[in-house]
Write a protein that binds this DNA or RNA. Structure first.
Lengths: 234, 234
DNA sequence: GGGAAAGCAAGAGCACTGCTCTCTTATTTG
DNA sequence: CAAATAAGAGAGCAGTGCTCTTGCTTTCCC
């Protein structure tokens, strides 16, 4: 998309990438709180003030890492969607794809705990996510919606009944994020989306320690249940 | 429980409380990341090194605040349980109490976002919650279990069918945390517990921004659904 | 091509942090 | 009353984000 013109811009792109790589490495190792600009610069053999030519503040570096993390987990979800069974178009296939997406997201989170915490843990105080993060942030949700759309086209989607006082909200959600899907799916998928991350966060942030043992099984069971809730029945 | 013997011990208790109060105030205002021992000491008119006589490290202060936060949200849940309808013992009453507990927890979280983030956001790196936090941490879950127990005693609990590969885990969970409840409720309540916090976290951490508008309605709808999932039907 | 403009690295410096150490003073205990 | 103990005060260390000034190099434009 962007053609690199001179040697200077090429160098700039390379240094920027190197900074992000090193920052991601330190993030994965020690977490966002301990991510220090000075340490990144030191590791790269540059002085700390030089780093500010590339990222005007620590928050800007974090924002770049947040976008990368959203993209990474989004890509995981999309690849799970692509690789899933597209067999006879039966309801079971769609449930399987839904569960597969959830499982892939969970696996990514367990493999990249600090990056997951960066995007779904406590937001940094005084930090409001800029608009540039909203696109990548939606990719997982869009993958889930995609499963519903396929099921709907195959005629096996049984849309849940929308609560009476949520009909308007549901219509707005469907119009804006999942056009074409039947009423009731809007609020259902938003709720399922949030609850999916509740399951992952509790496991990742240690809330299941000394409580839940069979975590794989529990997660598979719960996400299958969520599939039912959004209208994908076996 | 502890009798304060001399003037010195009385002073120590007072200073410890003052430190915790001031720390809680700053936590509520600026968040855990920006909570600084020096600022707390400054505000209290003492020098920073003196504070280390009361809390050996910043993590120990945070641990104290974590326990307080768990107790606060646990107390909110328990008061919602106590104040809820105990009327005719019908299924609707139990659903109402379940939903009321969830709503009270959510209200507490919205009123104390930084304290909520402290206990349910990203764990501080290299920080493992000590055993002393596990007791207070369980109070919300115990309140939810309490509703199930009452419903069971009233004979209106319809336990969900446990997944085949989770029967053992379910029995273990029931035995350890909810003795007397029928099979199936163990995994169901753990899943519902995690999903409840997914709903709250998504709202609180801004994931619903520019997406969900009718948040009260969505939350009430979703938690009612969770009640059904654990065997409380209307 | 040569001069002006812009981009970049380096270093010093500010205000802040958690934490340690020593020294002095006040309190409790034997 | 004397010894032991606890508390406060201050200096200091290593680290942080960020700013500013000083040179140097690359790019742009006439």
């Amino acid at each position: 998309m962007t053609t690199i013109r001179g040697a200077r811009e090429r160098a700039r792109a390379e240094v920027t990438a190197a900074i992000k790589d090193e920052a991601r490495r330190r993030l994965a190792k020690e977490g966002a709180v301990k991510l220090s600009l000075r340490a990144v610069a030191r590791e790269l053999g540059m002085v700390s003030s030089a780093l500010y030519r590339y990222f005007p503040s620590r928050d800007d570096l974090l924002t770049a890492l947040i976008i990368d993390a959203f993209d990474a987990v989004g890509e995981a979800a999309e690849s799970a969607l692509a690789e899933g069974p597209s067999g006879d178009g039966g309801a079971a296939d769609h449930v399987a794809r839904w569960v597969a997406i959830c499982a892939r997201v969970r696996a990514w989170a367990l493999a990249h705990p600090h990056e997951y915490a960066l995007i779904h843990g406590s937001p940094v105080p005084d930090y409001t996510a800029p608009m540039s993060t909203t696109g990548p942030a939606a990719r997982v949700a869009l993958s889930l919606i995609s499963v519903l759309r396929d099921a709907h086209e195959d005629g096996v989607l049984i849309p849940p009944a929308p609560a009476a006082n949520l009909r308007e909200e549901d219509r707005r959600l469907v119009d804006e994020f999942a056009p074409g899907l039947p009423p009731g799916t809007g609020v259902a998928i938003v709720a399922a989306w949030a609850q999916l991350y509740g399951l992952i966060s509790f496991e990742l942030f240690g809330q299941f320690n000394r409580v839940v043992e069979a975590r794989d099984g529990l997660f598979a069971h719960a996400t299958t249940h969520l599939a039912h809730d959004v209208g994908l029945s076996t």
